[in-house]
Write a protein that binds this DNA or RNA. Sequence first.
DNA 1: TCCTCTTTCACCCGTTGGGGCGATGCGTGA
DNA 2: TCACGCATCGCCCCAACGGGTGAAAGAGGA
Lengths: 212, 212
Amino acid sequence: MITVAIIEDNRLVREGMTDMLNELPDVKVVLAATSLQSAMLKAACPHVVLLDVGLRDKNSLRLAEAVNKEMADSRVIVMDLLPVHEEIAEFVNVGVAGFILKDATFEDFVGTIRSVADGERVLPPRMTGTLFSQIAQVAVRRGGAAALKAVRMTKREREVIALIAIGMSNKEIAQRLNIATDTVKSHVRNVMEKLALHSRLQIAAYAHSQDD
Amino acid sequence: MITVAIIEDNRLVREGMTDMLNELPDVKVVLAATSLQSAMLKAACPHVVLLDVGLRDKNSLRLAEAVNKEMADSRVIVMDLLPVHEEIAEFVNVGVAGFILKDATFEDFVGTIRSVADGERVLPPRMTGTLFSQIAQVAVRRGGAAALKAVRMTKREREVIALIAIGMSNKEIAQRLNIATDTVKSHVRNVMEKLALHSRLQIAAYAHSQDD
DNA sequence: TCCTCTTTCACCCGTTGGGGCGATGCGTGA
DNA sequence: TCACGCATCGCCCCAACGGGTGAAAGAGGA
């Protein structure tokens, strides 16, 4: 049995991965969190740590290094969207055992986990399918709406998103909706949490990508 | 001869207006600026001040009032895109002599200027044509590309716009393009100046509206 | 040749945004 | 009835952004 810890800040992806992996006979997810907490990770002591480094943090490298150092008996797999070659080299240098792109096949994904748990080193293979789409499928399969609720926007949030998309500031949105700017900020923060984004610009980009 | 000052922050519109008006035998543009500087305006001492209040400033009303107060012998025409009735009333109250919508006919436009210079008060007439489209036509007529250059983005600026559109910060753009963040800021400022925008979010909205 | 445009970079300053944290009502459904 | 999600608002902190000014170097056209 391979024990796995998932560090991933997008709720949909995180829970989808957890379910998918738990359906496998030889894999068990023992931890799924948004951020890295050494304490919890040490307590869980998983064979494999799936570490999402997204595209935001520059210090994701040091993050991977830290995990590798403090968890000598755990092996790290870095998940990324579109890593550059130099970055891959750097990650390998700090001791990352595996590398998987988010547009990988599920088979590639599981294969990487098993290989890494087996002691191998897996560098980014050429992949064709999309891991993301499969996660989305799993998400809708289990419990139907239950999963999508995690990323489903409330009425107010959709309003705020729409106003952000047309370029309005928090203050302007507050005036338009007749609420306090702090309230707008709360909505914006919740939206970013749900979509795993980190700026209102990304919210705007997301909004525009939706209504194409 | 009617002397005119133009306060308008969109370069294309500003220069287009200047040229169009200067082609008239009885009109001369003596000042064309983006913002209101009392000193320069007093020095120019125009018969008519064309004041663009756009849709951004809340205090455009006080601006119009200030011009009217300090320039007792100049008459003010407010230009706006889509003013509300209440706003019009307020502007009239602070002594604005004329009012012209940006989707007015050029004839209406010139007529308003002449009437105001003549001492009349011109409230927003019902108009049909679009002043904007005529300005664009004049802009291309005179020198062809010369005018569009004012709003034509440079290669670098287009790159920056594209990266803003997908949600990147100045710092991220700087890293991507291998330039300093201050340089990126310069480009962003220039873009905003050219498009008469006031935030990167609006740039993103503009970019997305373009490639539809 | 000179001048303009483009691209580059720097410094300063005030405002906004992102993130953490807590708190209060209010409806809905278990 | 009680928990939960939603919407509301507040405060703090610090980094990022918007805006102004200034400057330097290279490209290209007049």
